[in-house]
């Protein structure tokens, strides 16, 4: 896994630059708060921010795990049964193309306010990359290996579990990586309408003109997204060590 110090250095550099620009008053403080002020808010309102962060984490991880499981099973069924492909895939594309901000109010009507709606919003946003990438992975199985399995009269199950699924591991992780970030976006958007979490906090802070608090909440949301992506990267790293992402 790569070192993250260059990214940290850029973050510190940009923060220092922003601090200077804002200190000279080149950008009004009511539009963009000084990084030092955001840091103060992070410390002073930590318990409130931490509570929101925890709620969003539960929703985002919940949505991510559900979409991961449903996405993987859907891809398996689509790959195995062409009829399921024709029946389900258009809906997967539908979930990808319709903006979550348009669906979220409907989810509140159907499911109600609270965690379930936020998890559903998160899951809907991140399911398509998982299905799409997993399918691409299944279809990327080496042609010679498919011939080999056919030569030894392998069952459909063997082809799927011993060849197509392991061949799809790099693509599955690519899908999970994209979905990890989307899961947080979906959760926060869901919270805008269903309340609670970082989304709810941002919405309230916005109405109070607390730009500093909005920035602090955004930082925590970004941190959550980053942590999820890093968790997926760690999973990929474990599989990589076992040869799952080696070109065949």
């Amino acid at each position: 896994m790569r070192s993250s110090w260059p990214a940290l250095a850029v973050f510190v550099l940009v923060s220092c630059l922003a601090e200077l620009i804002l200190a000279f008053g080149w950008i009004p403080a009511y539009l963009v708060p000084r990084p030092s002020v955001v840091l103060t808010v992070l410390v002073q309102d930590f318990s409130e921010l931490w509570g929101a962060f925890r709620d969003t984490t539960v929703a985002a991880v919940g949505g991510f795990v559900i979409s991961g499981c449903v996405g993987l099973v859907s891809a398996l069924l689509i790959q195995r049964f062409p009829l399921v492909d024709r029946a389900l895939y258009p809906y997967a594309v539908f979930f990808q193309t319709v903006p979550i901000i348009a669906i979220a109010p409907l989810l509140v009507i159907w499911i109600g306010f609270g965690l379930s709606t936020v998890i559903a919003a998160s899951a809907i946003v991140c399911i398509f990359p998982i299905i799409s990438n997993t399918l691409d992975g299944f279809r990327s199985a080496n042609a010679s290996l498919l011939d080999l399995f056919r030569l030894y009269r392998a069952s459909e199950r063997d082809v799927l579990l011993r060849l197509r699924l392991p061949s799809a591991v790099p693509a599955i992780f690519s899908g999970l990586r994209v979905s990890a970030g989307l899961a947080v976006i979906g959760a926060i958007v869901g919270e805008f309408v269903a309340g609670g979490g970082i989304g709810g906090l941002v919405d309230i802070a916005r109405t109070q003109q607390r730009v500093d608090k909005v920035f602090a909440a955004i930082l925590m949301g970004a941190g959550l997204g980053l942590a999820l992506v890093k968790a997926v990267d760690f999973g990929r790293y474990i599989f990589t060590r076992r040869g799952y992402n080696v070109a065949q």
């Binding site: 010679s144 011939d147 011993r162 060849l163 392991p166 040869g243 799952y244 080696v246 070109a247 065949q248």
Partner: peptide, 11 residues
């Protein structure tokens, strides 16, 4: 059958 490439399962 032996293919042009080794066609081994990398994992």
């Amino acid at each position: 059958f032996v293919f042009q490439e080794p066609a081994l399962l990398p994992w």
